[in-house]
Amino acid sequence: MADAADTPMLSARALSCARGRVRLFAGLDLAVRPGELLQVAGGNGTGKTSLLRILCGLSEAEAGELMWRARPVREVRDDWKAGLLYLGHRNAVKDDFTPLENLRFSAAIAGEALDADRALRALVDIGLRTRLDVATRNLSQGQRRRVALARLLCGTRAALWLLDEPFTALDAAAVAQLAGAIAAHVRGGGAVIYTTHQPVDIDVPTRACVNLDDYAC
């Protein structure tokens, strides 16, 4: 059991990343273990989003190696994908669907079954009780963000959450609630890697921080 807890869930070695002809960072090492919270910090344009996209496999690193539970990701691609939940800048929410439809479709596309009851409860929990059957186009920016974040509240099989600026556009209550959900996931043996520009208090025993300014080229 101690072994399993010590094995990094996701680790990267000597990662470097280039966008177009600009190299953003190089020689980056990181590891996140079960029960850990890792914040990716750095100024604008240092490659935070690029790093998260590399870590979930959307982009390919220019060089370096990526390991999922101590195995190279190309050998355990399916486990790696099943163990991840990535929420990017964009909400992956359709304007023409209601929040409930959006939530259920996005779970289904990810390959997870989500029954209507659990989906409804998650939406109510995140404060959309009065907006359940309104087309998402009529919601505010913060409310749309909540629709996307509701995925985190309805119990996913993903052990590692990769959250890119999850707190933007949220009000204080929603920020606190999201921080609570992250803390609960981490305490339950999961792991979270996130980026943020606003100081948010997340109550977890171990936290780490990678500053991309240190790896800039």
Binding site: C56, G57, L58, D78, K81, A82, L84, Y86, G88, H89, R90, N91, A92, V93, K94, D95, S106, I109, A110, G111
Partner: peptide
């Protein structure tokens, strides 16, 4: 186009289901 614009395409790429089926 619209799936790309709102980020749904990213989620499709990350799905455990084969992208070709989607």
């Amino acid at each position: 186009e619209s799936d790309e614009a709102d980020g749904t395409l990213e989620q499709m790429l990350l799905s455990v289901e084969p992208l070709a089926v989607i």
